[in-house]
């Protein structure tokens, strides 16, 4: 008898474990937004104002690399809105019918940052970088392909000591003084504040990184999802994005 009880108990526990996560019956007023890591600050702020403007609505975010989020959506992750930091990722999501009608809501350009006071005396993407520790994004990620494109336009060959997977890792290495210079987005330079000095790169505006967002196909809160997209592309969103250094269309 005891044995049967124990077996039943274990089975019941297992059932409970396997059922709970899949049956995440979110309250109808909860909006899940998958957004690129570089949008963390602006989207968190926009989420708060959106909640204030829509009583009873709770916005939850998952911030990560755009392609990682796209992969999660492809695997069936429950989200209502997807915001990607590059067009290629959004095109991939669109081709797989994961999102509906994505729209361009911001662009970002590259800039050079150096530790406060510029101890290595870097003057730009030029000969002053010779022998200095330059950190950039790897070519396989959006900020890295943008960096390669810009270097090509300028006709310079970069010799980085490290090619990071995340632009925030580039920023961190400059902020801590491990690196003498780093190529990051204008928004990252702004977010780093007074820990770094910014050196604008000539012709940087010729390589723009596009940010797109759209409601996730099959979202159970498509009205709310559309409302959030409108919030980001509307005056409220444009003001917040511009303050962080993004260029809004």
């Amino acid at each position: 008898m005891l044995r049967t009880l124990a077996v039943t108990g274990v089975l019941a526990l297992l059932c409970a474990c396997s059922v709970t996560p899949t049956a995440s019956s979110a309250p109808p007023s909860e909006l899940v937004v998958f957004a690129a890591a570089s949008l963390k600050d602006t989207y968190s702020a926009l989420g708060r104002t959106f909640e204030a403007g829509h009583p009873g609505v709770k916005v939850r975010f998952s911030f990560d690399g755009s392609s990682i989020l796209e992969e999660q959506l492809a695997q069936g992750a429950p989200a209502d809105v997807f915001a990607a930091a590059d067009r290629a990722t959004m095109d991939k999501a669109l081709a797989a019918s994961l999102v509906v009608k994505p729209v361009l809501f911001a662009t970002n350009t590259l800039t050079l940052i150096v530790p406060k006071g510029n101890p290595a005396g870097v003057t730009g993407l030029d000969a002053s970088l010779h022998g200095k520790k330059l950190v950039v994004c790897a070519a396989g990620v959006p900020c890295g392909s943008a960096t390669a494109k810009l270097a090509g336009l300028l006709g310079v060959t970069l010799a980085p000591v490290s090619e990071e997977t995340k632009v925030t890792d580039v920023r961190a290495k400059v902020e801590t003084g491990q690196a003498d210079a780093g190529v990051v987005y204008v928004t990252d330079a702004k977010a780093a504040g007074s820990t770094v000095d910014t050196i604008p790169i000539r012709d940087a505006d010729r390589v723009r990184n596009d940010y797109l967002l759209g409601p996730v196909a099959g979202s159970r809160h498509s009205d709310l999802a559309n409302a959030f997209v409108a919030w980001v592309t509307g005056p409220e969103g444009r003001t917040t994005l511009a303050a962080a250094g993004f260029v809004t269309p």
């Binding site: 690399g65 950190v135 790897a138 000591v161 490290s162 090619e163 990071e164 997977t165 491990q178």
Partner: peptide, 19 residues
Amino acid sequence: GSLQGTTRTLPLEVYLIRE
């Protein structure tokens, strides 16, 4: 850091190409 042949070991390579 992460640079091919210098500091990018197998786990870092997996992390990068996963993107």
